[in-house]
């Protein structure tokens, strides 16, 4: 996506996770930080405990969506960014939680429109009870996550560049989606 194409486009950032389960709060906390520092015109930031069905209507109204979440499948503190595609097989059995790829599949099936979507995650190390308090390892991952978001909302950054490894980043291709690890 070049500068001209990115300008004027709508971006939605969704930080999600439980505020009271330790490092799971990192998504909402990063969203709060973004809100506090102020976003450019056309960029909206929301926080969610969980991803629920009505978000589909918001997703299809945006050109690019960035999900912010905690992860457990890596070294604590590891920050990754990868693009997401619709995946109906990611369907949850619970109403409490929808996988972002399932939400994209809803977009595709119902509205025939899927926003360009990225998932930025940080691996947590503790998910015990605490209220918006992260472990030091997860705390240190906030800034790299913010860096990713800033790049993803920067009109000068194009999608093709984001999908390639850059300084300090490495491809992580187990899902088949472009994935970068900081």
């Amino acid at each position: 996506m070049d500068h001209a194409r990115m300008e004027g486009r709508k971006v939605l950032i969704i930080g999600y996770g439980s505020p009271i389960r330790g490092d799971d709060a990192i998504g909402p906390l990063v969203a709060d930080r973004l809100q506090a520092e102020g976003m450019p015109e056309g960029v909206e930031v929301i926080s969610r405990h969980i991803l629920t069905a009505e978000l589909v209507a918001d997703l299809v109204e945006h050109d690019r969506v960035v999900f912010l979440d905690a992860a457990v499948d890596g070294a604590p503190g590891e920050v990754r960014c990868r693009s997401l595609a619709p995946d109906a097989s990611a369907m949850s059995t619970m109403a409490h939680f929808l996988d972002p790829r399932e939400l994209l599949a809803w977009c595709e099936t119902l509205y025939d429109k899927v926003p360009e979507t990225f998932l930025v995650t940080a691996c947590g190390s503790s998910f015990d009870y605490s209220n918006y308090v992260l472990t030091p390892t997860a705390e240190a991952a906030i800034e790299p996550m913010l860096d990713w978001v800033r790049r993803l909302i920067d009109p000068n950054e194009c999608a093709s560049r984001l999908s390639q490894p850059t300084d300090g980043a490495a491809m992580h291709g187990e899902t088949g989606s472009p994935t970068m690890i900081l």
């Binding site: 369907m91 059995t93 619970m94 109403a95 409490h96």
Partner: peptide
């Protein structure tokens, strides 16, 4: 107050 089931619940 924690559980809803979609389709096939566990």
């Amino acid at each position: 107050c924690a559980s809803h089931a979609f389709g096939e619940m566990p």
